[in-house]
Structures are given as structure tokens and as C-alpha cells.
């Protein structure tokens, strides 16, 4: 499989990356907890936390990618996204998870769990959205 060029990878998932929470606290990406996102969203005037439940994970015609169907928010809006298999999502109460944890660890040095149907992921939405 073609290895993704480092330039294409978002730098903030690299182990050791410094993340600033809404209250100004600095944490490493691998040390983030569910409450860090919840408390940051509570402080934010524009953003709020949504919970997005994984309903399906299907192969994609794009190499090294999958199509994930989520049920998003209170209204369970159906949303499909295509992501690289190593893309990490933050699962409530579990932490970083991806469709191919070994590849995530290989590319980001970020250890994570296997993303499964039924997992509830942290996502964001604007407070102004209906």
C-alpha cells in the first residue's frame, strides 16, 4: 500500500503535539481525555459538542480509505464521510480510535483503539446551527 506522504498528514495528531484547550491549558495529544473536549466546548461561545454514533464502516474505492456513516446529534442526522483508514476519531470514554490502529501508530506514533460500529465519537457543531 502506498504510504501517505508526511506532508499530507495533519500534524496535530503526531504523538507529542501540543494542544491548547479552551481555558488555555496545554496538553499533549496523547494525553487528552473526554472531559477536555466537553469542558472546552462549554467555555466556547461558538462551538458545541455533538455525539456522532458510527452506524456503518464500508470500504471505499479510494486506496487506504473507508466510508463511515454517522448518526449525528440529537436528530441523528445521517452523515457519510470518507477518511483515510488511519484517521483517528475521539470516542467518548475510550479515547483515540481508528479503522486501522496499526497504521495510525505507524504514521502518527499515536496509540489508539479499533473504531467499531456503535462507537460514539466526539464531533463539533456551531451553536448557531439549527
Amino acid at each position: 500500500a502506498s504510504s501517505t506522504s508526511p506532508a499530507a498528514l495533519p500534524p496535530f495528531f503526531m504523538r507529542g503535539s501540543i494542544i491548547q484547550l479552551a481555558d488555555g491549558e496545554l496538553k499533549r495529544v496523547e494525553d487528552l481525555r473526554t472531559e477536555d473536549f466537553i469542558q472546552s466546548a462549554e467555555i466556547s461561545s461558538e462551538l458545541k459538542i455533538d455525539s456522532s454514533t458510527v452506524e456503518r464502516i464500508d470500504c471505499s474505492p479510494t486506496p487506504n480509505a473507508v466510508v463511515i456513516q454517522f448518526a449525528v446529534g440529537e436528530l441523528k442526522a445521517q452523515v457519510c464521510v470518507e477518511v483515510l483508514v488511519e484517521y483517528p476519531f475521539f470516542v467518548f470514554g475510550q479515547g483515540w480510535s481508528s479503522c486501522c490502529p496499526d497504521r495510525t501508530t505507524q504514521l502518527f506514533e499515536l496509540s489508539c483503539a479499533k473504531l467499531c460500529v456503535g462507537d460514539v465519537c466526539v464531533s463539533l457543531t456551531l451553536r448557531s446551527l439549527r
Partner: peptide, 25 residues
């Protein structure tokens, strides 16, 4: 002498996706 080097700091909201279908007020 060790030159001080800047370390990038990323905002918390860049790590989680916006998935909600968009329709603003």
C-alpha cells in the same frame, strides 16, 4: 548554545470533525 525553537500549538477544536449537516440560522 541551544537555540530556543518554537513549538507549534494547535487549538483543541482542530482535532475533532464538524459532522453536522450545515444549516445556519
Amino acid at each position: 548554545n541551544v537555540e530556543p525553537r518554537s513549538v507549534p500549538v494547535f487549538p483543541w477544536h482542530s482535532l475533532v470533525p464538524f459532522l453536522a449537516p450545515t444549516q445556519t440560522d
